[in-house]
Lab assay of single mutants.
Amino acid sequence: MIVFVRFNSSHGFPVEVDSDTSIFQLKEVVAKRQGVPADQLRVIFAGKELRNDWTVQNCDLDQQSIVHIVQRPWRKGQEMNATGGDDPRNAAGGCEREPQSLTRVDLSSSVLPGDSVGLAVILHTDSRKDSPPAGSPAGRSIYNSFYVYCKGPCQRVQPGKLRVQCSTCRQATLTLTQGPSCWDDVLIPNRMSGECQSPHCPGTSAEFFFKCGAHPTSDKETSVALHLIATNSRNITCITCTDVRSPVLVFQCNSRHVICLDCFHLYCVTRLNDRQFVHDPQLGYSLPCVAGCPNSLIKELHHFRILGEEQYNRYQQYGAEECVLQMGGVLCPRPGCGAGLLPEPDQRKVTCEGGNGLGCGFAFCRECKEAYHEGECSAVFEASGTTTQAYRVDERAAEQARWEAASKETIKKTTKPCPRCHVPVEKNGGCMHMKCPQPQCRLEWCWNCGCEWNRVCMGDHWFDV
């Protein structure tokens, strides 16, 4: 396979590697080409510095992935760790964990309700045991953590790749202090920090972006993250068709209702045909949960890209028209025109101005929308079919299609509260000796007794199943 190397943020060049090629071997190839010592090179990928003893497969490097290699003399205490030698983080029983690669970060837990604080980093599902597709590297999971809308060759929703760059020099040479644990960490600028490894760059702020994971991409090709779309790892039924499908869209209502993408497309087109989208002054033209839940309008309007190009163009047109109407304007009634106009409040005669090729020149009556006339309008008909009709959803289907309910059931079956801080902690095999993952707590306690870890627990039921 081919990976592209950008040395000291210059133009990239291809390097041929195998899945079992080590990072140090990659350094040696680059060092020979650039005429520099291999031990002064640092390989940066997806916000993480890659260790010498890791392989291309370990690092989730795919065909035509772009890695950054910078030349920086080692500072005291760094060289041993980078070589894969006596790194205290690798000691058996050590409590410190390697910062998780962005290629394996899962933010789907952050669609849980606000009262489930902490689960994004504490609760991990076991539903990723799908067998890898044919042709994928051994052991590589097909679980997708992110979804994007690819405006490039795909023109559809695709699995996405999370990447990070330095907000100062805009190069992907920043190593994160810690990985993101929720969508806010990724979507809110300057929320996460790190250290830029580019020479002479003092940058410390992280800037995240997404790429389409279905095809090789260049540095400049980015895609918009659709953070309401998630892999259906909890096997929730769709609120409309009641099938279990994946991926799904999880509405931001209190129940976190789930809808499959085909039904979401149908829901949007139906509402669009009836012009029953909601115009929100802050958000724009949007839709609420299909069950009509309060405070559930979709905030990231790129989710409506699921409509496809033709329907999305209609959505944008109707949204612009609705904006004009909300501002007190009118639409030209001549067939084939429909231009938005903003006449004076007491102006009865409205002319669709033909300047700049935008208007048709038609003069019409503001009251009856017919060709302009003197005197009273002959008839004014009330528009028919403008009443909002509820999208029919079966109550039982709505009850079963809740992301929140599956989460709470998982928590109930696989977790116990920490005796000190009461945060839910998952036990997935292993011994009875637990350690609270909350940095402010870190209590060592017994899963069996529910009390602080002691010699009695150690001698009596340390390794009970």
Score class of each variant (00 low, 15 high):
4 F>S: 07
10 S>C: 10
10 S>F: 08
11 H>S: 05
12 G>R: 05
14 P>I: 02
15 V>E: 00
16 E>V: 06
20 D>I: 03
26 L>Y: 00
28 E>F: 02
29 V>P: 00
33 R>N: 05
35 G>H: 06
35 G>E: 05
38 A>L: 07
41 L>G: 01
41 L>M: 06
44 I>W: 06
44 I>F: 05
44 I>S: 03
57 Q>N: 09
58 N>C: 07
64 Q>A: 13
66 I>D: 03
70 V>G: 00
80 M>P: 13
80 M>K: 10
85 G>R: 09
87 D>F: 12
97 R>H: 12
101 S>A: 11
101 S>P: 12
103 T>S: 11
104 R>D: 13
111 V>C: 12
118 G>W: 03
142 I>G: 12
145 S>L: 04
150 C>S: 01
153 P>N: 10
156 R>A: 15
157 V>Y: 07
157 V>I: 09
158 Q>F: 03
161 K>W: 06
162 L>S: 02
163 R>M: 13
165 Q>A: 12
166 C>M: 00
168 T>C: 07
169 C>L: 00
174 L>W: 04
175 T>C: 13
178 Q>I: 08
182 C>H: 06
188 I>N: 10
191 R>W: 04
196 C>E: 01
209 F>I: 15
214 A>E: 10
216 P>E: 12
217 T>Y: 09
219 D>S: 09
220 K>P: 10
223 S>L: 06
224 V>L: 10
229 I>H: 01
238 C>L: 01
250 V>L: 14
253 C>S: 00
253 C>A: 01
254 N>Y: 08
254 N>H: 10
256 R>L: 06
256 R>F: 05
258 V>F: 00
259 I>V: 07
261 L>A: 03
262 D>W: 04
262 D>V: 04
266 L>V: 14
266 L>Y: 10
269 V>S: 04
271 R>F: 06
277 F>V: 04
292 G>R: 06
293 C>Y: 00
293 C>M: 02
296 S>G: 03
297 L>V: 08
298 I>G: 00
300 E>S: 11
302 H>W: 07
307 L>P: 04
308 G>V: 04
309 E>F: 10
310 E>T: 08
321 E>I: 06
326 Q>R: 13
330 V>C: 07
331 L>S: 04
336 G>N: 11
336 G>E: 07
342 L>K: 08
349 K>C: 05
350 V>Q: 04
353 E>D: 11
355 G>L: 09
357 G>L: 12
360 C>G: 03
361 G>N: 07
365 C>N: 03
367 E>H: 08
374 E>L: 08
378 S>V: 09
380 V>S: 08
383 A>S: 11
386 T>K: 14
391 Y>H: 07
394 D>M: 06
397 A>Y: 09
399 E>S: 14
401 A>K: 02
402 R>Y: 03
406 A>H: 12
407 S>F: 09
407 S>A: 10
411 I>W: 09
413 K>P: 13
415 T>W: 12
426 E>M: 13
426 E>V: 10
430 G>M: 15
432 M>C: 05
433 H>K: 05
433 H>F: 05
437 P>Y: 09
437 P>N: 10
445 W>H: 05
445 W>S: 04
451 C>Q: 15
454 N>F: 01
460 D>T: 15
